[in-house]
């Protein structure tokens, strides 16, 4: 089985996510881009798993999904908290922690 196209697709998805994180300012979109990157990774894992012929890669993909779910819970929670405090929903304005 040739996995080249799967990997190409996965890399494109990953690059899209990374560029999105770097360019967009809304935390909501950044969270979405993060999900995109995670799923690009999942795609690669599943593709490799099929190539090798065992299920370990798929198990990893399931675990990554769980972690992604957790991450979304925390991330969305943060966004709601930011919204409630009427802080700007813009990551460039939220830079209190600068060194």
């Amino acid at each position: 089985m040739n996995i080249t196209w799967y990997i190409v697709l996965s890399s494109l998805l990953f690059a899209t996510g990374a560029v999105g994180i770097l360019l967009r300012r809304s935390p909501m979109v950044i969270l979405l881009c993060l999900e995109l990157m995670l799923n690009a990774g999942n795609l690669a894992l599943v593709a490799f798993s099929r190539m090798v012929g065992n299920e370990q890669g798929q198990v990893f993909a399931v675990i990554v999904m769980v972690i992604a779910a957790c991450e979304v819970v925390v991330g969305l929670g943060l966004i709601v908290a930011i919204f409630r405090r009427r802080l700007p929903l813009n990551v460039d304005d939220l830079r209190e922690l600068r060194g």
């Binding site: 994180i21 770097l22 360019l23 950044i30 990551v91 460039d92 830079r95 600068r98 060194g99």
Partner: peptide, 17 residues
């Protein structure tokens, strides 16, 4: 080094990536 700690999340991400 402290100049890197500028608080811009996106620049952190850039560094990471």
């Amino acid at each position: 080094v402290s100049r890197v700690q500028n608080g811009f999340v996106r620049s952190y991400a850039l560094l990471l990536i």
